[in-house]
Design a protein around this nucleic acid. Structure first.
Length: 264
DNA sequence: ATGACGGATCTAATCCGA
């Protein structure tokens, strides 16, 4: 099974890129973040034409929003309003593989604003509460077979950013966020698929700012998009890739898709 | 300043992203 996570930054604007991605890589399941689209306006006709007939949406107007697009049957689903805000940041699809039931969680963690201080910055407080709530709920859930993916908006390790030193006070790479994400990783014994395949001293990014005049040349990226699996599924993971080339497509998202092949 | 762009919104200037 092939699975992709992608912060698409507007599914309506980038429908052509989504179809191109689907045709080129033929994923079974695509988890999207930042669809920025109400559910009734989600462009799904052409996706259905490609065989993606199982589509879950948790969208709101204008901001955020997540979706799960699948060509394999989804046997169950739920969404949780983290921090009691109806802001489209979580979806879970359940699929069956033989006798196994596998939960696929798709998250869009809040960005957290500018200042890394929960007392003065409400957005940062929201982000930290969101990750704490993920810990609590997933621990309570304690699934044996599960996948967790999405835009977690935290680059946890030194080589997940272009300069750990220069970004240590920048939201997404502060010590408290890195610590919180590691704590989350330890709940349910999640395994970071990217770092299973790519050594810790190798730079790895999934996001490059729009503000750079030449994103490729400056290459000041961050690894904000993640693919995790429960420990019992790690040996089933056959491959992983960050699709960097997609950043160079016409009218790109600032995030690129992350892809995984898993034998389930 | 790392870097000033790109998306959505009651189409114009404002909020948001990270």
């Amino acid at each position: 099974m092939r699975i992709i996570t992608w912060n698409i930054n507007s599914v309506r604007l980038r429908e052509p890129s989504l179809l191109r991605l689907a045709k080129k890589h033929e994923p079974d399941i695509i988890c999207l973040q930042e669809t920025k689209c109400p559910n009734e306006a989600f462009p799904e006709k052409k996706l259905r034409g490609l065989g993606y007939t199982h589509i879950l949406k948790n969208g709101i107007k204008g901001y955020h929003g997540v979706a799960i697009i699948s060509r394999v049957p989804i046997v169950g689903s739920h969404q949780i309003d983290y921090c009691r805000r109806k802001d489209g940041r979580h979806l879970c699809a359940t699929i069956k593989s033989g006798r196994r039931t596998i939960d696929i969680h798709n998250f869009y963690v809040p960005a957290g604003g500018d200042e890394a201080d929960v007392k003065t910055n409400e957005k940062f407080a929201h982000k930290m509460s969101f990750v704490r709530e993920m810990c609590r709920r997933l621990q309570g859930d304690a699934p044996q077979y599960a996948l967790l993916m999405g835009d977690l908006n935290i680059a946890p390790y030194e080589h997940d950013v272009w300069s750990s030193q220069q970004l240590q006070k920048v939201v997404s790479h502060t010590p408290q966020e890195r610590k919180a994400l590691n704590k989350l990783l330890q709940t349910c014994d999640w395994q970071d698929v990217a770092r299973h395949f790519v050594s810790a001293d190798e730079k790895l990014y999934s996001w490059w700012s729009y503000r750079s005049t030449d994103w490729k040349k400056s290459d000041r990226g961050r690894r904000l998009d993640h693919l995790w699996v429960t420990k019992s599924l790690l040996k089933a993971v056959q491959g992983f890739e960050i699709l960097k080339a997609v950043r160079g497509w016409q009218r790109p998202s600032d995030h690129v898709p992350v892809i995984m092949d898993i034998d389930i």
